[in-house]
Design a protein around this nucleic acid. Structure first.
Length: 723
DNA sequence: GTTAGGG
DNA sequence: CCCTAAC
């Protein structure tokens, strides 16, 4: 209690089209889901305990259906309604960037901490100095509950993520280090992006556990137009991941917080098992490349004997997931580790409720805004970051992003969620919000006897290692990688709503930065450079794809929420409201929506981004899904009327009759809508979501449904017998 | 191409 | 909304 640690990792910057479909229940679970062994379970439980957080899970009210209501008026209906002359009805159909981003990576490390000691933040930049880093790394320390000291050096340049690595000595202390990594963006970016806004305000602090990254990108149309097409100015942005150059986008980092309250656990017991801690980037078990090495951290604690053989392997990893598909299957919350892999894709039903909301570690939210407007092409971007600052002003084309990262121990996966909502406003700005993203899968192997603290640290180290190498941003539009960085958003079509749906961002390990490995090795139990640490050194492998959820009405237009691509829209089906929901419980939902492309079970495999099949495939799939277009009351009315006359089972006729002009409404849609209407009519009003349908219409729905059901029975007497 | 249902 | 089996 004395000290709570919270680690949040915040990434900013990637957007991906939100895809409602992600939630789809039909999806198969990822094959690589691993079985959790008993030991693992224990470990998980432990983690869960440690990570106990508030559940955001939304409760569902029991649905009460009253079928009785259907019967009413059944007779009358026939005469009055059915015989009623046909009115011509016409359904009224509702209508319906480059920027500089900063990636901030926050690292928090926890070593075995002495509870008694005051928390001390330590920045470790050792070894980092030698490396040249593309990005500027700023580290900041903060104390959550137990005052951490802020490190004098708020910023470190030239260091990549490495800085976060803890030395063994540090282990003894509780360290919370936040590192903000700013990836410099090219100066050219400015041209393209006139303005970037943070959507920070949009997110309420509702989730401690969640890492949220809010990025808003606003494109200034005017400037865009001014830009010469194809000029270099834009090139820096969205650089092709493959390209060695540092990503133009700057992600502003979030903070990572890891909270564990149980530091109080006696270390003595913990110490024993600490000898081996292996952190491996995710891969198949056999091939796991992790290095088991006595962690420096553990060193201090190292007991006389190791209990070594039993190891708990955890997979913390986030696997690359298919953008398009999520498995809907949801596992027990306890199966954190395993589940994580899959959960991303889980269908909304399951995943929404469980994944994030439960088992969340109460991380304190933290937002970091990075507003520095200027970036040098060469240099590192320096940003002044403010925690919890609510707003950023970017004057110069700089993007501010706030990111919050969260580590979800319960799932035992590190996830950064990226959520982007894009809003296109009249002024031709494109706003994107990246809500969350997920960290690639990690493996951790640690003795059972290891302390919670050491486990935390192991996780931390793994994450650090992952991030250390640096990330770059890739963009995918309609399943194709955007390689021409010089194009404007307008030219690429990103400014269009439709295009946004198909837009995706990827975070990929930055090949160019393979440097870290050696450094890490010492302090971290990270695989040496030759180790196939998946995240490091493989430039080409797409690390993560972030679906972007686009929300219309970011500001004004609350009503239309469109989901893009992969991310599932918040579950309020008909409910148009975006923002609020995003902030609140929806937030959790939306997180779940995040999809990460699955790279295949082999985390280590290097798959070129442009590699033949996978990527395109995912995106293709993702973009196939139509955007969600809730039925308006007028449409419902038209549907009801048509069904009243034509009956169910003649959807094509219904379509032609009432929705002939609505090309986006297929007869299947109408059929589905009718199905939902019937369901809606049967449930209590409190359980209904979305734009409320007049009770009168619902009554008609029930009446008509009952009537036509009756008619069918008449025609198929045999079925009656069954009843 | 439509329907009907499950997801 | 998607997906598919069954017509």
């Amino acid at each position: 209690m004395v000290a709570q640690k919270r680690i949040g990792y915040g990434f900013v910057g990637c957007q991906v089209p939100t895809k409602p479909r992600a939630a789809r229940s039909t999806r198969k679970r990822d094959t690589f889901q691993t079985r959790v062994e008993h030991n693992q379970m224990c470990a998980i439980d432990l983690l869960a305990t440690v990570a106990s957080g508030t559940l955001l899970q939304e409760k569902q009210n029991p649905i009460t259906s009253s079928d009785e209501t259907m019967k009413k008026d059944q007779r009358g209906f026939v005469k009055e309604e059915v015989q009623d002359g046909n009115k011509p009805f016409k359904a009224e159909l509702p209508d319906e960037a480059s920027c500089e981003r900063r990636l901030q990576q926050g690292f928090v490390k926890e070593g075995c901490v002495d509870t008694n000691k005051p928390l001390k933040a330590e920045l470790s930049d050792d070894g980092s100095s030698d490396r040249k880093c593309i990005s500027t790394l700023s580290l900041q320390e903060y104390d959550l509950n137990s005052g951490l000291k802020e490190s004098p050096h708020s910023e470190i340049e030239g260091c990549s993520c490495i800085a976060s690595i803890l030395t063994s000595s540090s282990l003894s202390e509780r360290l919370v280090t936040d590192t903000l990594l700013d990836v410099k963006s090219h100066s050219e970016m400015k041209n393209i992006t006139s303005k970037v806004e943070l959507g920070s305000s949009g997110f309420p602090d509702c989730s401690d556990c969640n890492v949220d990254v809010d990025v808003s990108i606003v494109k200034d149309e005017l400037r865009k137009s001014e830009m010469p097409i194809g000029t270099e100015t834009g090139t820096s942005c969205f650089k092709d991941p493959i390209d060695d150059k540092p990503p133009a986008l700057v992600v502003s980092g979030g903070n990572a917080k890891l909270s564990g309250r149980d530091d109080s656990i006696p270390r003595s017991s913990l110490l024993k098992g600490c000898d081996n801690v292996t952190v491996v980037s995710r891969d198949d078990d056999e091939n796991k490349s992790g290095c088991a090495h006595p962690s420096s951290k553990t060193k201090a604690f190292r007991p006389k004997t190791c209990i070594g053989d039993q190891r708990i392997r955890k997979r913390l990893a986030s696997k690359y997931r298919r953008v398009a598909r999520e498995s809907k299957h949801d596992t027990l919350s306890n199966n954190v580790l395993d589940r994580n892999f899959n959960t991303v894709y889980n269908g909304r039903k399951n995943s929404y409720s469980h994944q994030i909301s439960q088992m969340n570690i109460p991380f304190k939210k933290r937002k970091i805004f990075d507003c520095s407007s200027t970036s040098n092409s060469n240099g590192n971007i320096r940003s002044g970051r403010t925690y919890y600052s609510t707003k950023n002003d970017i004057n110069q084309g700089v993007s501010c992003s706030s990111s919050r990262m969260r580590k979800d121990l319960g799932k035992s996966s590190l996830e950064a969620y990226h959520h982007r909502s894009a809003l296109q406003s009249r002024d031709s700005h494109v706003k994107l919000r990246i809500k969350s993203f997920r960290v690639p899968e990690l493996f951790i192997e640690i003795p059972e006897t290891a302390t919670v603290a050491s486990l935390k640290k192991a996780v931390m180290d793994a994450v650090t290692t992952l991030l250390r190498g640096g990330l770059r941003v890739g963009m995918i539009l309609h399943g194709k990688k955007l390689r021409d960085d010089s194009k404007t958003l307008l030219q690429t079509g990103i400014s269009h709503d439709d295009e946004l749906d198909a837009l995706g961002f990827t975070l990929e390990p930055n090949a160019s930065q393979s440097l870290p490995i050696t450094c890490v090795k010492d302090s971290l139990n990270v695989p040496s450079g030759d180790m196939p640490l998946s995240l490091i050194g493989h430039s080409s492998s797409p690390a993560v794809v972030f679906p972007i959820q686009r929300v219309q009405g970011f500001s004004n237009t609350d009503h239309q929420v469109t989901t893009l691509g992969n991310i599932v829209e918040s579950d309020n089906d008909s409910a148009p409201s975006p923002i609020n929901t995003l902030g609140g419980k929806k937030l959790s939902d939306s997180k779940e929506l995040v999809t990460i492309p699955e790279m295949g079970s082999e985390g280590l495999d290097i798959l070129p981004v442009n590699q033949s099949h996978q990527k395109p495939k995912r995106t293709e799939i993702s973009q196939r899904r139509r955007i969600r277009r809730p039925f308006s009351v007028a449409e419902v009315e038209a549907l009801v009327e048509a069904v009243e006359r034509l009956g169910t089972g003649r959807w094509r006729d219904v379509k032609l009759r009432a929705f002939d002009d609505a090309k986006h409404r297929t007869y299947v849609d109408l059929k589905d809508k009718w199905k939902t209407l019937v369901h809606t009519a049967r449930i209590s009003p409190q359980q209904r979501r979305g734009e409320p349908v007049p009770q009168e219409l619902l009554d008609r729905v029930l009446t008509a449904h009952a009537y036509w059901s009756q008619q069918q029975l008449k025609h198929h007497p045999e079925t009656c017998l069954l009843l």
